[in-house]
Design a protein around this nucleic acid. Structure first.
Lengths: 207, 207
DNA sequence: TTATATTTGTACCAATTGGTATTTAAATAA
DNA sequence: TTATTTAAATACCAATTGGTACAAATATAA
């Protein structure tokens, strides 16, 4: 490795310094997209929420699409990181329990918008946003496939029945998750969502 | 009753006759809203789909909001009528089975957009459409409450256990339905959706 | 034929959409 | 100090948004 490149000095900024924190701005943008969806969020609303004006947003993040993608990555690595992390539980049963219960906590957290950004941000849209719509669909499929892979592992460990259809189980889990997201956005309380989860869990193999 | 008012003659149209069929136009509008959502549908797209120009749409249906409401009523009374009808089955179990299986058929019908209009048309939106968003939330709650009432009846008939929480059962059912809608919009096949339904049905009381 | 009623099509409206050109301000390097 | 680099702020852009004024067209009633 080239130390001159890997060891980054605090760096000496040449011109006028940035007047805002990029991470904070990205988080503010995430919250707006999360609450109003991709098309439901206007650049004007973003300038208000981030506290910086349009040319600065474009200079820092590209265009609206790019800003959304960066906010999405921030979401996956930040508030939604538990979705990836829960898979490290020792049994499939625990994976599913942790996932659904943490999902309920997450969806009803009052400090963030309700529901899931990846489910809601562009479920339907005009022609101009179908690229984002397709990218969100791909995200959903990716997460679903990751759960299927985890269940496949469980099957190999005899932690799930040999005749279990891991793809269907993963899709069942994803369906519950997406339904919970709609419910959370529609005003369901944490207790109501948790009761749904308890019903859904009754249905898991090797109960 | 006043026969002069109740018995309607075919009526003699005074001015220039309508050049389009109102029901067909409404159905065309429904299909566009169904596919692209409320905000994702522009008046320009509607004029194209209905084959009539804007002033005629406004004269016949009011404004965009009113047109959406009429398309929504058309949806509830037409393609989505089964949601109300399934509740007439003799047991709660049959109600749920019929509802979920017919939902899958409905969502994967290739002659109409995938998924449910009431779930997708305005899950998220800009400030200007929150009225429609709230109305759709009210629709969802109404249908969920109707299932809860049906389950309450089943409970009185000892068709469901006495300790069954009918509100939670109805919310569980609505959650599955809404999740299936997201899945259908994301490209899941009929077979995949049906497999999810079979898993969800395993969880019903008095199996 | 003429008057009246209603719908059509064109052309337009202000407001908002995402996106930028340009000038001014604030920093460092020479 | 001066040149250079970068960001901020204002003001603007064409395109699209939902919605309408108005005149021409098409029907019935008198």
């Amino acid at each position: 490795m080239n130390t001159e490149e890997t060891i980054k000095q605090p760096a000496k900024p040449r011109g006028r310094p940035l007047a805002f924190n990029q991470d904070e701005a990205l988080e503010a943008a995430l919250n707006v997209f999360w609450a109003h969806g991709y098309e439901g969020t206007s650049m004007a609303e973003l300038t208000g929420a981030l506290g910086i004006n349009k040319p600065s947003i474009y200079a820092a993040f590209g265009n609206k699409e790019e800003l959304f993608r960066k906010a999405l990555a921030h979401y996956v690595a930040g508030p939604a990181a538990f979705v990836t992390e829960v898979k490290s539980a020792v049994t499939a049963r625990e994976v599913v329990e942790n996932f659904l219960r943490q999902t309920v906590e997450f969806f009803s957290d009052k400090s963030t918008p309700n529901g899931c950004l990846i489910v809601q941000a562009a479920l339907t849209c005009g022609q101009g946003s179908s690229v984002i719509q397709q990218e969100l669909i791909a995200y959903r499929k990716h997460f679903e496939a990751a759960f299927a892979a985890r269940f496949e592992l469980a099957k190999a460990q005899s932690d799930l029945p040999q005749d279990a259809n891991v793809a269907s189980l993963a899709k069942y889990l994803a369906t519950i998750h997406q339904g919970l997201s709609v419910q959370a956005t529609s005003g369901a309380t944490k207790e109501e969502l948790m009761a749904v989860v308890e019903l859904a869990l009754k249905n898991w193999p090797n109960n």
